[in-house]
């Protein structure tokens, strides 16, 4: 098993946080995992992205050209990473911020309103966690239980944020049923 994920969006959408949380959960499930942030001279208003590899074998390279799963939180990310999607890959699009719906041969596209759902829960900034929920339910690689166990440490024991983010993850999971 090898899963190569790219998460991309605007700076401020919690792209790095989501990536780290996935990597962290994979580590807790005793999988090999690497997380590589885009650390370049990123442009304000452009994309921020990170790459995660999860595997049951040692990981050769944390950087890769072919994507198994893309979580695109805004339009520029869709355009930037679509050419790298592998045959049989999954694409999660934040339909709240992306209007055009691409049809790509061999790619399972899911258009989901992550930001709208997060706003409905009370904080648009949890759109990343809604996306995480959709990913968990769709790919079934990591368990919800393990993700939830990480939240107290991730939010430094801030109960309010934990609850809010947990709700967002579950709302995301409900989108895939």
């Amino acid at each position: 098993m090898i899963e190569r994920i790219v998460i991309a969006g605007f700076g401020g959408q919690g792209i790095m946080f989501l990536g780290k949380l996935i990597a962290w959960a994979a580590m807790r499930e005793n999988k090999f995992v690497s997380f590589l942030p885009a650390y370049g001279a990123e442009v304000r208003g452009g994309t921020s992205h990170c790459a995660i590899v999860i595997s049951d074998k040692e990981i050769a390279s944390p950087a890769f050209d072919e994507i198994d799963t893309l979580i695109a939180m805004n339009s520029p990310s869709v355009l930037k990473f679509i050419p790298k999607l592998k045959n049989g890959s999954k694409l999660f699009i934040n339909a709240s911020m992306v209007n055009n719906t691409p049809k790509i041969k061999g790619v399972k596209v899911r258009l989901l309103k992550f930001t709208d759902i997060a706003s409905g829960l009370g904080n648009a900034r949890t759109a990343n966690m809604v996306a995480l929920g959709a990913y968990l339910a769709s790919k079934k690689l990591l368990s919800l239980k393990n993700i939830l166990k990480l939240l107290p440490e991730a939010f430094k024991n801030n109960k309010k944020l934990q609850v809010l983010n947990e709700q967002a993850i579950k709302a995301g999971m409900n989108l895939i049923k």
């Binding site: 580590m27 997380f35 650390y39």
Partner: peptide, 10 residues
């Protein structure tokens, strides 16, 4: 190298 510095692993 930069890859080693930037990447996170267990």
């Amino acid at each position: 190298d930069a890859m080693l510095g930037q990447m996170m692993e267990p």
